[in-house]
Computed example of a mutant assay.
Amino acid sequence: MSNPIEPRERTVSVRLMELVVAGMFMAAALLVMTDNWRIGARWADDGPQAGYFPFYVGLIMLIASSVTFVANLMVKEGRPSNFVARSELTRVLQVLVPAAVFVIAIGYLGIYVSAALFIAAFMAWLGRYPAHRIAPVAILVPLALFFMFEVWFLVPLPKGPLESWLGY
């Protein structure tokens, strides 16, 4: 079902997004096929080689995404439709951009300090919580995760300068 486009709400059409996603799937399928051909995607004397089945899964994915791509190239858009309204896109970006910053920060600050900053920023910015509610959550959640993963389960996660300073 397509949404009528209001001039001020125009972002990206459903057709364009389907072309982009189909193109990305085609690229992923070609990567899968190429890599599995390299490791062996043929039938050997003792049965299928390691890349045999993944190669054909990639081939099926390539065919399906190519059909979607070509079908969207050939279709004439009647009534223009929006993939997402500008207000909806803004809300998605309000989560996506800080999440990307969080992932990048993990490499420099470690996961626990980055998580504390991420939680505090979200609670302050989107939740509009006061500092006396933000501080305990932003400190205790990463601290609990630290003890759970590092101490109890012995699963090391990326650490930064603070953990190094504390001897971890």
Results as ranks from 00 to 15, higher is better:
83 F>L: 12
37 W>C: 00
48 P>I: 10
20 V>E: 03
103 V>I: 15
138 A>T: 09
51 G>I: 07
31 L>F: 15
103 V>C: 14
150 E>D: 13
150 E>H: 13
104 I>P: 00
55 F>R: 00
32 V>M: 12
141 V>G: 07
98 P>W: 14
28 A>R: 00
37 W>A: 02
33 M>E: 12
146 F>A: 04
127 G>W: 14
141 V>H: 07
114 S>G: 12
118 F>T: 12
106 I>W: 06
147 F>W: 14
97 V>C: 13
148 M>I: 09
92 V>R: 03
6 E>Q: 12
9 E>R: 07
27 A>C: 14
141 V>Q: 09
163 E>F: 10
44 A>Y: 11
14 V>F: 01
17 M>C: 11
33 M>Y: 10
51 G>N: 03
167 G>I: 05
130 P>S: 14
67 V>Q: 03
87 S>H: 12
65 S>D: 12
23 G>V: 05
139 I>S: 01
57 V>Y: 05
20 V>W: 08
84 V>W: 08
100 A>V: 15
133 R>S: 14
78 G>C: 02
91 R>K: 05
63 I>W: 04
29 A>L: 02
65 S>T: 10
64 A>Q: 01
110 G>K: 08
78 G>H: 10
98 P>I: 13
13 S>K: 06
142 P>Y: 11
87 S>K: 11
108 Y>A: 11
52 Y>H: 03
148 M>P: 00
38 R>Q: 15
8 R>A: 15
142 P>A: 11
132 H>K: 06
147 F>A: 12
62 L>S: 00
21 V>M: 04
89 L>P: 01
134 I>T: 10
163 E>T: 05
88 E>R: 06
165 W>Q: 04
75 V>H: 06
22 A>V: 09
132 H>Y: 15
160 G>D: 14
128 R>E: 15
78 G>Y: 05
57 V>A: 12
109 L>P: 04
163 E>Y: 04
88 E>C: 00
